[in-house]
Amino acid sequence: MLWQKVDKLLKENKMSINQLATKMGLSKNNRTMYYLRDGKIKKPSFELMCKIADALDVSLDYFRKDKY
């Protein structure tokens, strides 16, 4: 569910996963975003989520589950 929201924002911003990683300050060899996409990261850290939200210019609330 998380990756679907990230992917939607990537498409809306016409941004690739590599561009997102660069904007987040991750090195070219860092596989974090691919691990997230492939479901290898089940519970991303707060720090990672903050970097993703900042890079995509959205609130962290955007990534919360639809039901509380």
Rank of each mutant, 00 (worst) to 15 (best):
M49I: 11
L56D: 03
Y35N: 13
F46L: 09
M49Q: 03
I17R: 07
I41V: 13
A55D: 01
K14P: 00
S59E: 13
R64V: 03
K67E: 12
K8Q: 15
D38F: 05
C50G: 03
L9F: 11
A53W: 15
Q4C: 01
K5N: 09
T22S: 11
A55S: 15
N29Q: 12
Y62I: 03
V58W: 10
D38V: 04
M49C: 13
M24P: 04
S45F: 05
M33Q: 09
G25I: 04
L56H: 04
L10W: 07
M24T: 04
Q4Y: 00
D7S: 14
S59T: 14
S45R: 11
R31D: 10
L10N: 02
W3Q: 04
A21F: 10
K5V: 07
R37T: 01
K5E: 12
A53R: 15
Y35F: 14
M1V: 09
I52M: 06
L20A: 09
C50M: 14
L56P: 06
F46A: 01
K51Y: 07
L9Q: 10
V6D: 03
F46T: 06
R37E: 12
V58K: 10
S45Y: 07
V6K: 10
Q19Y: 05
A55F: 09
I41S: 08
K67D: 12
R31H: 10
K67G: 00
K65N: 13
V58N: 04
C50N: 11
P44H: 13
L9G: 01
R64W: 03
D61A: 06
